[in-house]
C-alpha cells in the first residue's frame, strides 16, 4: 500500500479524513487500543522516569519479545506471552535488590545479562516457528492491523485494573520515589511499593508492546513522561501533560501509518521524539528568559521573603 493506492489520499480536512479512517472497523479498534495503551503507558512511564527505572522498563520491553514469540510458537495468543513474560520479568527484577535504579553496576549488569539471553531466546522461538518469520517486524516495530474487539476489551480491563491499583498507591509511591529514606522513616512500605510498581510497569509494557512493538515501547513509556517533566515541575500537571502527549503522538502516529507504508512504531517514536526536543528547547528558552529577568525581579522577591 502506498500513497497512490490508498482508497483516498490525505485531504487536509481532519473531519473527512477521520471519517474515512474510522469507516474501517479495524481502524476503530486500533484507535481504541491506542488510546488505552497511551494513557496507561504515559502514567506508568511518568513514575518510571521519576524513579529512574528506565533500564528496568527497557528490560521489560525486551522481555516481551520472547514472550510473544513463545506464545505464538505454542499456538496460543501472543497477548498471553506478553503479559506472562513482562509480569514475570518484573518479579525477577524486583527480586534483585535495587536493580534498575542505576545504583550498582553489578545488579544492572545482571539485569542486562538476563535481558540479552531472553532476546536471543526470542529469536530462537521465531526460528523454530518457521511460518512466523513475516511477523517478526511487527513484533519488534509495532502493528495496528488486526486488533480484535476482544483484544481491545482485554487491554481496557487490564489497563483499568492497573490504573486503579496505581491510584491506591499513588501518593506513597511518589513519596518513596523522591525521598526513600524519609518515606521509610514515616512507615511507608518502600520495598513492597517498589515490587508492586514493577509489576504494574510490566503490565503497561506488555500492553504498549502490542501497539508500538517491543523495541519502541519507550516511545510511549519514556518520551511523553520525559517531555512533560521538562515542561513543568508540578506533579499533577506533569502527569496530565504526559497523558496528553502520549495520546497526541499515538493518534497522529495511527493516522500517519494509515496513509503510508511505514510501520506505526516509527511514526509514534518520531512524533514523541519531536515533542521531547521541543520541550527541552522550550525549557532552555524559559531558563534563558528567566535569567535575563532575574536581575530586576530578584530584589523584589528577596524583600518579600524577609518581610
Amino acid at each position: 500500500m502506498n500513497w497512490a493506492d490508498a482508497s483516498a489520499g490525505w485531504s487536509w480536512n481532519p473531519v473527512t479524513d477521520l471519517q474515512q479512517i474510522w469507516a474501517f472497523p479495524f481502524m476503530v479498534n486500533a484507535f481504541r487500543a491506542g488510546t488505552v495503551v497511551a494513557v496507561l503507558a504515559a502514567v506508568m512511564g511518568w513514575f518510571m522516569v521519576l524513579r529512574r527505572q528506565s533500564f528496568a522498563g527497557h528490560t521489560l520491553a525486551v522481555v516481551s519479545f520472547p514472550g510473544a514469540a513463545f506464545a505464538t510458537l505454542l499456538g496460543i495468543g501472543a497477548g498471553f506471552g506478553y503479559f506472562a513474560f513482562c509480569v514475570g520479568g518484573a518479579l525477577v527484577i524486583a527480586a534483585i535488590p535495587r536493580a534498575g535504579q542505576g545504583g550498582s553496576g553489578q545488579e544492572s549488569a545482571l539485569t542486562g545479562t538476563v535481558q540479552a539471553f531472553l532476546l536471543a531466546c526470542g529469536f530462537l522461538f521465531v526460528a523454530l516457528y518457521k511460518g512466523f518469520l513475516g511477523g517478526v517486524n511487527s513484533l519488534l516495530f509495532g502493528s495496528f492491523l488486526g486488533i480484535t474487539t476482544l483484544q481491545v476489551a482485554v487491554l481496557t480491563i487490564v489497563a483499568a485494573a492497573a490504573l486503579g491499583a496505581l491510584t491506591v498507591i499513588g501518593r506513597p509511591l511518589l513519596f518513596a520515589s523522591v525521598d526513600e529514606n524519609v518515606a521509610t522513616g514515616r512507615g511507608v512500605p518502600v520495598r513492597a511499593l517498589s515490587v508492586v510498581f514493577l509489576v504494574l510497569l510490566g503490565t503497561a509494557t506488555a500492553e504498549a508492546s502490542q501497539i508500538t512493538g517491543t523495541l519502541l515501547v519507550f516511545a510511549l513509556l519514556v518520551m511523553p513522561a520525559a517531555a512533560a517533566q521538562q515542561l513543568t515541575a508540578r506533579p499533577a500537571l506533569s502527569l496530565a501533560l504526559s497523558v496528553l502527549i502520549a495520546l497526541a503522538v499515538t493518534w497522529t502516529g495511527l493516522i500517519a501509518a494509515y496513509y503510508s507504508p511505514y510501520p506505526i512504531g516509527f511514526y509514534v517514536t518520531t512524533f514523541a521524539f519531536s515533542v521531547y526536543v521541543l520541550a527541552r528547547a522550550t525549557r532552555a528558552l524559559n531558563t534563558a528568559v528567566g535569567r535575563h529577568r532575574f536581575a530586576g525581579a530578584g530584589a523584589g522577591a528577596g524583600a518579600g521573603a524577609v518581610a
Partner: peptide, 13 residues
C-alpha cells in the same frame, strides 16, 4: 511538593 509529601505522603490514594 517535597514539603507536602512530609505532610500527607504516607496516605494511600
Amino acid at each position: 511538593d517535597i514539603v507536602r509529601l512530609g505532610l500527607d505522603g504516607d496516605r494511600w490514594g
